[in-house]
Structures are given as C-alpha cells and as structure tokens.
Amino acid sequence: MAEIKDDLRYTDDHEWVMVDEDDEGVVWVGVTDYAQGQLGDVVMVEVPSVGDDVVAGDAFGTVESPKSVSDLFSPVTGEVVAVNEDLDDSPELVNEAPYTDGWIIKVKMSDPSELDRLMNAEAYAAHVEKAEQG
C-alpha cells in the first residue's frame, strides 16, 4: 500500500505539496509514494532553474525511468526558489524517500489560495484507490 502523509496537499497527477513552516508563501513539491511506485526506478529528474516561473497544472519537468519519460505538473503558480540538487547524482531518492530527501523543487507561490484547490490526504487516498482499480 502506498504511503500517504496526513499533513500534505495533493494533485490529481500525484504530486504533493508541503507548506514551509519558516518561509512564508514557500512550498516544497515532490511526487507521492504511489507515483514513484508507478514510475519505477527513477534514473533522471529534469527540473527548471532557480528563478524560473511555474504555473499550476503545467508541466515543469520530467522524471525518467529506464523505460519511460513522465511529465511533472506544478501544483501551484510561482517562482522556483530552490531545486533538489541531490537528485542530479541520486535520482533514486525519489523512490527511496519520496516525501523527504526525494523532494523536487521549492516554489514561492504567487497565489497562496491555490492550495485550497488541492486534495487533502483523505481525498487523495480515495483518488489513489480509484487509480488502482482503474
């Protein structure tokens, strides 16, 4: 069973968002445990540069496994303020620790109310269950 964290927000496309406790308006973005299981072994993560803009619902990067390339979709709109450089040499962190060391980017949101449109853990669990049956 894929792990789902209670305190995160989720997208339909299986990204998670965590509000940074210290830096107001900044969120951490990654892919869920369910997503990393579906992707298989991650061998490369391609992300934008710090300073680039991302738009909610738009592709902002890619995750690659031996067999496939998958788009990453931004949960929120804003400016990229950090990227996880550890993924350059250790993309497997996305598989091993999707909610912690495998985070992908941090975004300074331009519209914090976008968070309200994302799923909570309960809604996301139902979404995953549906996907697994589909």
Partner: peptide
C-alpha cells in the same frame, strides 16, 4: 510481467 522488484535491480 514487466517488472518485479524493479528494472535496475533485476538488470
């Protein structure tokens, strides 16, 4: 079966 534990480990 496309994979069991994972493509890299199986490879």
């Amino acid at each position: 079966p496309v994979q069991y534990s994972g493509i890299l480990a199986e490879h």
